[in-house]
Amino acid sequence: MKPDQQYPDKPLSVYFFGTCLIDLIYPQAGLAGMQLIQREGVKVIFPQDQTCCGQPAWNSGYREQARSVALAQLDCFPQDIPIVVPSASCAGMMRYQYPELFKDTPQLSRVKGFSNRVFELTEFLVHVLKVKLKDLGPPTRVALHASCSAQREMAVSEEHSNLLQQLDNVEILEQERKRECCGFGGTFAVKHAEISNAMVEDKAKSIADTGAEKLVSGDCGCLMNISGNLQHTGQGPEGQHIATFLWERTNATES
């Protein structure tokens, strides 16, 4: 967590912002995230009108388009309750970049009110719900990739580890150059494919070299990138969103 971050008491209900990548590619991660919250006795609301946080346009310089999409999201989450996001990248966009995006606009104070309610999933589980996880799975060894947003912008990589460490049968294996970016960077991966490819090859190799059985990450952009390369080379572990991993290991009704 950031030194100045304040967390609310456990609420009765929360909003869930699923992110567009999870919506289309990793919906199970979104579902698991909601189930982890529900299990703590908190009601989850998933507004059906939500789409994307707007980050792709914001990082490409198309601010007007990013603002339209951001405003559409603001309309979906009107109640004064936390908004939980299973991605540090999208959460960072909504918490820290929205106020930049709306700087010098009449919407700024409304945007700030929204941004202050945004929490990344693992920080919410640790600091607000204060979850205690009971590991039901067999012994396993995993590599954790905390995204750049998780490490820096949101400062929640400790919370990722905290949750994994609560699982008695899970060992976290350290990879070389753990803090280095995987090379995704949104449109960067397409605009500068050759550099991105060089970066993901290095990252995937350092993860494969750990001998881990699973790659766990809190961000699906990185997962899609790193797992994509691991599947391409046929080396290394399967990737999983941290929410799916935590849910599968702690849910009594799943095998």
């Binding site: 397409v190 494919a193 490819n197 993901v200 994509g228 391409h232």
Partner: peptide, 12 residues
């Protein structure tokens, strides 16, 4: 360029 070093992501 994406699939030069990666498998394409599978849509759910």
């Amino acid at each position: 360029v994406w699939t030069r070093v990666r498998k394409a992501p599978a849509i759910a």
